[in-house]
Amino acid sequence: MKLIDIAHSRTGDKGDISNISVIAYDPADYPWIAREVTAERVKAHFAGIVTGEVQRYEIPSLSALNFVMQGALGGGVTRSLAQDAHGKCLSSAILELNIGDRP
C-alpha cells in the first residue's frame, strides 16, 4: 500500500528549509504510519533534492507527523534556480512512499 491511501500532506517553506506534514485520514492508522515513515526513509525518498538533515516531530493529537528538511529548497526560496522554488510539490511526492500491508 502507498502512503497516499491512508494519509494526506502539506508542504511549507522557510528559507532553505521545507516542512512536510503527514496526517493520517483515520487516527487508527497513525501508529502504523509513525512506525513506517521514519526520518531516515523520508531523507532517502528525497535524496537528490534534500541535502541536509531531516528531523521528525510527532503530533499524536492530530494523528500527524511533521518532517523538517534542511537544505531542501535549492539554497533558499528567494534565490533558488528551481522551478518550484517553494517546494510546494514535495507533499504529493512523499505520499508515494510504499508502506506495506495494513498490520
Binding site: H8, R10, D13, N19, S21, Y25, Y57, L62, N66, V68
Partner: peptide, 16 residues
C-alpha cells in the same frame, strides 16, 4: 478537520 490539520502544521518546524 483535515483542512485545519494541514494548515496547523503549515510552515511549522518544532510544533512545541
Amino acid at each position: 478537520e483535515r483542512t485545519c490539520k494541514e494548515q496547523l502544521l503549515y510552515e511549522i518546524h518544532d510544533p512545541a
